[in-house]
Amino acid sequence: MKYLKQFVLILFITGIGELIRYAVPLPIPGSIYGLVLLFVLLCTHVVPLDSVKETAIFLIEIMPVMFIPAAVGLIESWADLKPILLQTVVILVVTTVIVMAVTGKTAMVLIEREGKRHE
């Protein structure tokens, strides 16, 4: 029953997120409103961690499986991907390296600067 209660609470917050998505004319997924809402409710202790924790962690653990149907949709969109396959590989490799370098280097500089200030 504990898991079911937790799941209903998560679904309730998800539902509110989707209502916000419906009411706000911005291209933001309803799940993001729900995520932020749950985070705020946890921080303000309106929703105690114990009332969602186990089910939330279970859902996150099995999340990879949930992407399979969407990715298998590649069968349908192969015609769209085929002409830009080479460009796709270039974007994939180049941007991943850039993002990793920029994020890591920025963090290094900021952390070193903080460290010097404390000395």
Binding site: F7, L35, L37, L38, A56, I60, M66
Partner: peptide, 10 residues
């Protein structure tokens, strides 16, 4: 997927 994404708040 939607409730799982909301769960990332935890």
């Amino acid at each position: 997927l939607t409730p799982a994404t909301v769960s990332l708040a935890v």
